[in-house]
Design a protein around this nucleic acid. Structure first.
Lengths: 200, 200
DNA sequence: ACCTGAACACCGTTCAAGT
DNA sequence: ACCTGAACACCGTTCAAGT
């Protein structure tokens, strides 16, 4: 029973998160287990529990990387452009990131806390941030409207974008054969956002 | 080891599906396992596998009941009214059924096939039906538009409704405190559907 | 101090054997 | 024919014990 001491806790943490991504990418979101991740990085399961609280923590930390990637892309998109264009970029960023790594995003979509534990605050803040970025743009778009109106529109619009990306990644959207998620996003943006921007 | 023979296979099937609903309602969607369902109805796990292919089959059959309930409600809503009103009813049917039995709908939202098995056709047809019902109304609403346009709008709209209901049931929508899913649905219907109906 | 390995209480699934 | 119970290969989580 050799000890390793080759890696710091932070390094082990990074190795584990990489292992989650590799396993998901090659064997799908259901392939994740503490034991498999441990085996992949050459440690025992017990070791994982010195670095992560539990599997939920492990998965959420892996998922947070993707959410952060989307948030960064959306923050970058916010620079300069007209709000309507920024929001369109954000929506397409979501879909295109989801298409780039469908299995990893499926893990984001599919994960639920064991038992009925609540989603931890640090993770919630990251997903809330995505709504906030949309809300900022809607406020720019219609500065004279009540903030509550922009908040409602942001939640409506981003939930809808989420629904489209979710069904796209799980192949439930392309029913007849020809509908693409990109077209659905554009339809949503044209009609929802177009109408919202004009009204009052 | 007493044999029972008290119930036919169909009765056992119904008992098991009821047990799934009871367990989910009282202990949440993560509480479902073949062993627990078997225990709840007084049979062994082995017995379950004479009635269901596997747990996916068990869960999907339970979930299909909810999907069917929504489909029936939406078919009933289709009678008589103006298409725009029918679609609004359908969307609110979805949300209100989801609110009536949040845990059971969470099971619908959260379930994914073990390994990477595909969703069986018989279940897919049921969820596709929900899209089809919306599509029919959109064709009524704009009879002169190309069928592909109605198909795209149906998928866009229903994916969005799905996204809103999904986030509503998992409590991820009410960020600031005041946004309700009902308002988000109405916002979606007003702006998306309103704009789509008017354009051309 | 760092990490292991075994233990505990669970899973899904199969199938020979009992009645 | 109907159903069981034990087996197999997995889980998540904990923690005394080893180095």
């Amino acid at each position: 029973m050799p000890r390793r001491s080759e890696h710091s806790l932070d390094e082990i943490r990074a190795l584990a998160l990489d292992a989650v991504e590799d396993l998901v990418a090659s064997h799908g979101p259901t392939a994740i287990s503490a034991r498999k991740v441990a085996a992949q990085i050459g440690y025992t399961v017990g070791m994982l529990y010195h670095v992560f609280d539990n599997v939920d923590d492990l998965v959420l930390q892996a998922n947070a990387r993707l959410v952060d990637q989307l948030a960064r892309a959306n923050e970058a998109a916010a620079a300069g452009n007209r709000p309507q264009r920024v929001i369109a970029r954000m929506a397409h960023n979501y879909l295109s990131l989801a298409r780039q790594a469908p299995a990893r995003w499926q893990l984001v979509f599919v994960h639920t806390m064991r038992d009925g534990r609540p989603v931890p605050d640090w993770y919630r803040q990251r997903t809330d941030r995505l709504f906030a970025l949309v809300e900022e743009q809607l406020q720019r778009l219609a500065p004279r409207r009540r903030p509550a109106a922009a908040a409602l529109a942001a939640r409506t619009l981003w939930s809808s974008v989420h629904g489209i990306c979710l069904l796209a990644v799980s192949d439930k959207l392309d029913i007849g054969g020809s509908t693409s998620a990109e077209k659905a996003l554009d339809s949503l943006l044209t009609h929802y956002l177009g109408s919202w921007a004009q009204s009052r």
